[in-house]
């Protein structure tokens, strides 16, 4: 009777496993063969592509840039998103639902359309730049296209909506009474934040931060559109290498390294978290 549950899982497992293995093996093993011209590949096993990745500054710089941008976006998203999530979760008002619905709707809309809007906002003759130049804050128009800062803004638009939703559900799990207890005992607001809210939401913050980080490491659309052929993150580089230059081998190498680095950074953060957790519970 109980065994039935195994069998209903099997068809979808076989399908996803089949697609996963077939696509990834077919693609990633190419990283160990030399690219010949026109998308054909050599037949001798070689590590030349990997060697090239770690010796050619084009690839290394791109890796460093991707990690740096993703970290920046993860931190900024948490800094901006957490206070909003907190206020929304604690707000007792008819507006909460409307505000939440707005955030969900904003996160529904595909990033292509948001990027289109960002490009209009930051266009050199656009109202924002005209305003900033009129006030004298900047002397020449700020460009968003072709500049890493612009890519950060684009990526934040990609991650902000659902991060607020995730953090909102994190804050909801913290009983309000804990904060009240701390306040009754005379803790000032910042102290309640530092000693109650922050420690209790830390796991949720780390998880959200990692999700944002991972998404940014792999983000293609906003990086490609806003990067404007000048900001080469690894996903943009993969597209260039595979689609424009038909170098499947090098593309596979970049992909493998991108996924391994992302995985390693995730592993390290989880490790650091559990260490921290253990130390804290040992102290307590």
């Amino acid at each position: 009777m109980k065994a039935r549950w195994h069998w209903i899982l099997l068809p979808s497992l076989l399908l996803s496993l089949g697609l996963l293995l077939a696509s990834q093996i077919a693609f990633l093993r190419g990283g160990f063969f030399r690219d010949l011209r026109l998308g054909r590949m050599g037949t001798d096993f070689t590590l030349a592509n990997y060697e090239r990745f770690f010796t050619d500054p084009l690839y290394l710089d791109s890796l460093v840039l991707t990690v740096r941008l993703s970290l920046t976006v993860a931190i900024l998203t948490l800094l901006v998103g957490f206070p909003i999530a907190y206020v929304l979760a604690r707000l007792k008002s008819r507006w909460t639902l409307v505000l939440l619905a707005g955030i969900i709707a904003a996160s529904f809309i595909t990033i292509v359309i948001k990027v289109l809007g960002l490009i209009i906002i930051f266009s050199s003759g656009g109202f924002l730049n005209r305003f900033l130049m009129w006030t004298g804050i900047v002397s020449s128009p700020i460009a968003i296209v072709g500049n890493p800062g612009g890519v950060v803004v684009g990526l934040m638009h990609f991650t902000m909506g659902f991060s607020i939703l995730l953090l909102y559900s994190v804050v909801q799990t913290i009983p309000r009474s804990l904060e009240e207890a701390a306040e009754i005992h005379g803790a000032p607001r910042w102290r309640v934040f530092a000693r109650v809210i922050l420690p209790l939401s830390l796991p949720g913050l780390v998880v959200t931060g990692l999700i944002v980080f991972n998404l940014c490491m792999g983000a293609f659309t906003s990086a490609a559109l806003i990067g404007g052929g000048k900001v080469f993150t690894l996903p943009v580089l993969i597209q260039q290498t595979v689609i424009n230059q038909t170098r499947y081998g090098m593309g596979a190498t970049i992909s493998a390294i991108l996924m391994l680095v992302t995985l390693a950074i995730n592993g390290l953060s989880v490790l650091a978290m559990t260490k921290l957790d253990k130390r804290r519970s040992a102290v307590a």
């Binding site: 899982l9 979808s12 497992l13 996803s16 496993l17 996963l20 077939a22 696509s23 990834q24 077919a26 693609f27 990633l28 190419g30 991972n214 490491m217 792999g218 983000a219 293609f220 996903p235 993969i238 597209q239 595979v242 689609i243 499947y248 593309g251 992909s255 991108l258 996924m259 992302t262 995985l263």
Partner: peptide
Amino acid sequence: IVAALFRAPLQIPAVVIGVSFLKLYYL
């Protein structure tokens, strides 16, 4: 492990899924 396998596509950047399926389809 099975649960992780089901989640695996979420860990692969969409660009990589795109190019690897392209390769698979050519194959």
